[in-house]
Computed example of a mutant assay.
Amino acid sequence: MSTRTAVVTGASGGIGAATARSLAEAGYHVALAARRTDRLEALAKELAEAGHSASVHALDVTDRAAVDAFATALGDLPPLHVLVNNAGGALGTDPVATGDPAEWRTMYEVNVLGVLHVTQALLPALTASGDGTVVVLTSTAALATYEGGAGYVAAKHAEHVIAETLRLELCGQPVRVIEIAPGMVKTEEFSLTRFHGDAEKAAAVYAGVEGPLTAEDVAETVAWAVSRPAHVNVDLLVLRPRAQASNSKVHRVR
């Protein structure tokens, strides 16, 4: 494993940082990619102190020129075997009638075009490895909708379609395409970003929910999926907390 590289986008926090830790512990050199390099530097230092290997790469996945430069820089690292498309996020909970087109556009560019840019740029190296894996972190929002979530749901549905189509197009090639679709995950920033910094609204999302998923739960799932034998493809894995039966049915303790 020490001769293999895994790329994690959005590695500066939450699920991305947790996934980077899990893959580093599995023996990969982890290429940490995100916009907030100060956080990446801190994570790389943490991994190095634990005896793991990581490199820091400033990256905005919506900037194609930057993504192409990033792909070139990876040539100095061990061969690329895993790409985890994690960068993304949600903005707002407005209904379709009053949704902000700018927020929809931002979500589409990060969640959808970001996956497209990075996957296109790194696919040649993943194929050349002879045993490549593309992971797309979507959401249960990629599979079912809910009121107030149309912009995010539309973007995540598009990500799901990318993963599903890419798997068809790569059939016969030495690259797996794995989609991990988490449900309610409590992280420091996801809901806070969605509600534009309103901590009260962000906290209300998880109020009364016993045991929402953690970033580490998702990271362990990613590490398990990519560690399956090369002939085993985990097409789609939906991950929810026990308290969540669907996007719209969640048990809360009052």
Rank of each mutant, 00 (worst) to 15 (best):
G197W: 03
T133W: 01
R240M: 09
V185S: 06
Y146D: 11
G132I: 03
L237K: 04
E216S: 10
G183R: 00
V175M: 10
R228C: 01
E147M: 11
Y152S: 05
A158L: 11
Y146F: 13
G197F: 02
F195E: 12
N233F: 02
K201Q: 15
I162A: 03
E159M: 14
V232M: 01
E200W: 03
V161C: 13
T119C: 09
A150N: 04
V136M: 13
F195A: 10
R176F: 01
P212D: 08
H157N: 07
A207F: 09
E164C: 00
L170H: 04
G172K: 08
P174G: 08
K201S: 14
V185F: 11
V238M: 07
R176S: 02
E188Y: 06
A202G: 13
A207N: 12
H231R: 11
L123H: 14
A154R: 03
A202R: 10
T119I: 08
L123Y: 14
T145S: 14
K186W: 10
S129P: 12
E216W: 04
E210N: 14
G148Y: 09
G183M: 08
K201L: 15
L239Q: 03
V136Q: 13
D235Q: 15
A207T: 12
T119N: 06
R176C: 05
V175Y: 01
Y206N: 04
V226P: 00
A230T: 12
F195P: 10
E210S: 12
P241I: 07
A215K: 04
V234R: 00
T119G: 03
P229V: 00
A202E: 07
E188G: 05
R240T: 06
P241F: 03
A142R: 02
F190Q: 08
A144D: 07
A203Y: 09
L137M: 14
V135H: 01
A144F: 01
G149T: 14
P212L: 04
T138W: 02
S139Y: 03
A142Y: 01
L143C: 01
E189M: 10
L126G: 08
V153Q: 01
V234I: 12
R242N: 13
P212S: 10
A150G: 10
L213G: 03
A204E: 09
A155Q: 03
W224H: 07
Y146P: 02
S139N: 11
V205P: 05
K186I: 03
G183W: 00
A215Q: 07
A215V: 08
G151V: 02
A223S: 14
R240A: 05
T165G: 13
E169R: 07
E210T: 12
S227A: 14
E220T: 11
G211R: 11
P241M: 12
L166T: 05
A121K: 04
A230M: 04
C171R: 14
A163W: 03
H157G: 07
I178S: 05
Q173N: 05
V175A: 09
K201P: 08
V177G: 03
L168K: 13
A219Q: 06
E147N: 12
G172I: 05
A150K: 06
G211Y: 01
V134W: 00
R167I: 04
A163I: 09
A181Q: 05
